[in-house]
């Protein structure tokens, strides 16, 4: 028996938030992307409710453009922990004519996810969606609340947010509204990596350096793959790379890396001078890209 419980303040706060979700909402769901942040959330949820099971399902909005390693990892995690997994596909939203596939050089299904997500929220009547977004990721996210109320259209009204005082969370909502919950709001990228290391949490292999067919555009490293638009003039190379975030292949750039172990990755992040979202192609579209997407219901 270890003697003295001294809190890791960030972990304690996240567990508190997850328990508030379970207590204040009828149908919460954890939005699971297969990325390190949502995997960390799963571990925090395990801790929050142990020895009981996590009292809400996972929801994955699958663009169909995920890295296969991520999907494999997701299924394995769900099986091991006995979790309930719901998958909804962007392809279905396209087939139903609700959204139109983007064309051209920067085509991505990233923004299309919003429609599929909002439909899933309506289908299952979810009143709280737990996500792994962090305030340090991006400027617009720095002002996000822990409990962020969205209207029937999933919209975020940044000028009209409820103030959050001390650690008291107000999750009271009207019919049709839902709340996006961000339990790791106050974590940094390094916090997440150090936690994964301390807790010995498994993560998908694409976070570690591996050989991959890639091409270079706009100073970023893109995956060479059938889902990613590539000009004939854009030459393909095999490089040692890893990913710092795991989203769609079409919007997640790789970084050159030799870091094959967790220790090496953490050391690399610590010394890194490129911010994590610098490798997100979707944010490069404009300076206010994230804020615009958030207003229309993007995670």
């Amino acid at each position: 028996m270890s003697n003295l419980l001294i809190p890791n303040p960030k972990e304690a706060e996240s567990i508190h938030i997850l328990r508030e979700v379970a207590a204040q909402f009828e149908k919460p769901v954890l939005l699971f992307s297969g990325g390190k942040d949502s995997i960390t959330l799963v571990r925090l949820a395990q801790k929050a409710f142990y020895p009981a099971r996590i009292p809400f399902p996972l929801l994955h909005i699958d663009t169909g453009h995920n890295f296969p390693e991520t999907i494999q990892f997701r299924d394995q995690l769900v099986a091991e922990l006995g979790l309930e997994l719901i998958v909804r596909n962007v392809q279905d939203s396209i087939d139903q004519g609700k959204v139109t596939e983007e064309r051209g050089r920067y085509a991505s299904r990233n923004t299309l996810q919003t429609t599929t997500l909002l439909d899933a929220i309506e289908e299952f009547k979810f009143d709280a969606c737990i996500g792994g977004a962090r305030r340090d990721e991006e400027k617009a996210r720095a002002k996000e609340r822990v409990f962020s109320v969205r209207d029937d259209f999933g919209q975020w009204d940044e000028k009209n947010q409820r103030p959050e005082l001390f650690d008291m969370l107000n999750g009271k909502i009207h019919q049709g509204q839902n709340v996006r919950v961000f339990p790791i709001s106050n974590w940094t990228e390094l916090d997440v990596w150090e936690y994964i290391k301390t807790e010995n949490i498994e993560i998908p292999s694409i976070y570690f350096a591996h050989k991959r067919e890639v091409f270079f555009r706009d100073g970023l490293i893109w995956t060479a793959n059938e889902h990613v638009y590539r000009e004939n003039s854009e030459e393909v190379f095999e490089k040692m790379v890893r990913f710092r975030t795991v989203g769609d292949m079409t919007c997640t750039a790789a970084v050159l890396s030799e870091a094959e172990t967790l220790d090496a990755v953490v050391a690399e992040i610590r010394d890194s001078t490129i911010s994590e979202r610098g490798a997100r192609i979707d944010d490069k579209r404009s300076e206010a890209a994230m804020e615009k997407r958030k207003k229309v219901g993007y995670f």
Partner: peptide, 19 residues
Amino acid sequence: SISLFDQEYEVATPGSSLT
């Protein structure tokens, strides 16, 4: 008992999320 996840403790200090 005082616990966090699968670990038990004798003493908990303030700020801990525990069971």
